[in-house]
């Protein structure tokens, strides 16, 4: 963390030079290759397609988390928000035949509104982010229960299923992957190549300095939490389209809040703020998906899967910390 504080604020670009992306690509490719030698079935196009597809929802949510962490915040409420969005969109589609474009609107509106609420609590009421989002975690989770009244989403209309699985206009790339590419590009541009991104990183680096430099710190904070909410709800919509199901434990049951933090940090974003790696987040999520699939191909007993995940987090974050310390 002292590394981040010591870094000059004049260089707010996301950490291109630590080459975390290259490391992740290399490690992912190496593990995929190694598993492929043991079990060639791993390297089929079909399997790799699902490895990618399975990582999309987490990637989208984690990109929002990346923005928040870059600003030295944290957002635990992404998990219930993702679940709320999946439940509301799914139930509206299942029981009221809401068209897909309507669901996109509903998801984004929920995300913006509740994300903004997080932002206001953090920025205007000065509640620390971890406490704010711990509190809204319960509130948003409760909304899902209230809305669903104990039912679940079992089936979505064909348009939703097509959106979640097939490619648009007959393209071989599934729509969720394209959505992820778009979101990644937008975040990459916003964070690394826009005034907004410079402001976010400046706030993460040193909020006092950012304020003294004339930045509207509170407004930036609200915007970033709103974006995180937006992406969490977009993730929820993609989830319900891809899996065709949503229950009250969607998001929270899989601990998406912890997973999204983990992949953001493994991807090279610093928890102390001030530096983010958008591409790293997506690649880390892909790496996680690769490892979890590889464990099945290697016939590792399922009880050790989450241990594998834990080790991956510690090893990968350790590498990042060392590099950052070395640069300071």
């Amino acid at each position: 963390m002292s590394a981040a504080a010591a870094r000059p604020a004049a260089d707010p670009r996301p950490g291109w030079r630590d080459r975390r992306e290259l490391v992740l690509v290399a490690v992912t490719a190496a593990s995929a290759g190694a598993v492929g030698i043991v079990n060639p079935g791993f390297l089929t196009v079909e399997n790799l397609r699902f490895v990618a597809l399975n990582s999309v929802v987490l990637s989208i949510v984690a990109l929002g988390q990346t923005l928040v962490i870059a600003m030295r915040g944290i957002d635990l409420s992404v998990a219930p928000l993702m679940g709320l969005s999946a439940m509301v969109c799914g139930l509206l589609a299942q029981t009221h035949g809401l068209p897909l474009w309507g669901a996109v609107g509903v998801a984004l509106a929920i995300g913006l509104a509740l994300g903004t609420l997080n932002g206001v609590l953090v920025a205007a009421l000065n509640i620390p982010p971890i406490i704010t989002t711990l509190g809204t975690y319960s509130l948003f989770g409760g909304l899902t229960f209230l809305y669903s009244d104990g039912t679940q989403v079992d089936q979505v209309p064909p348009a939703y299923a097509a959106f979640g699985n097939a490619g648009p206009l007959g393209l071989p790339v599934p729509t969720p992957v394209l959505v992820l590419l778009l979101v990644t590009a937008a975040c990459w541009f916003a964070l690394g190549h826009s005034r907004f991104g410079r402001a976010v990183l400046a706030v993460g680096n040193n909020a006092a300095a950012a304020y003294n430099a004339g930045l509207r710190v509170a407004v930036i904070r609200i915007q970033v939490y709103a974006l995180s909410g937006l992406l969490a709800c977009l993730g929820g919509l993609v989830f319900v389209c891809y899996t065709g199901s949503a229950t009250v434990t969607t998001g929270t049951g899989d601990h998406v809040e912890l997973q999204s933090i983990a992949v953001a940090l493994v991807g090279g974003t610093l928890i102390a703020g001030g530096r983010a790696n958008v591409l790293g987040t997506v690649l880390a999520s892909l790496f996680l998906s690769t490892v979890l699939t590889a464990l099945v191909f290697l016939q590792v007993p399922p009880i050790w899967y989450s241990a594998g995940e834990g080790l991956m987090i510690l090893v990968a974050v350790r590498g990042g910390t060392r590099r950052a310390a070395g640069r300071a």
Binding site: I261, L265, Y305, A307, G310, L314, V317, T321
Partner: peptide
């Protein structure tokens, strides 16, 4: 030890170890 020796932030260090301990508990 993970926090001090490996220099990992407490939040992420204990997140990682919680996955490890949880797996061990199931086993």
């Amino acid at each position: 030890a993970v926090i001090l020796r490996l220099g990992i932030e407490p939040l992420i260090a204990t997140l990682g170890t919680s996955f490890l301990y949880g797996s061990a508990a199931v086993a």
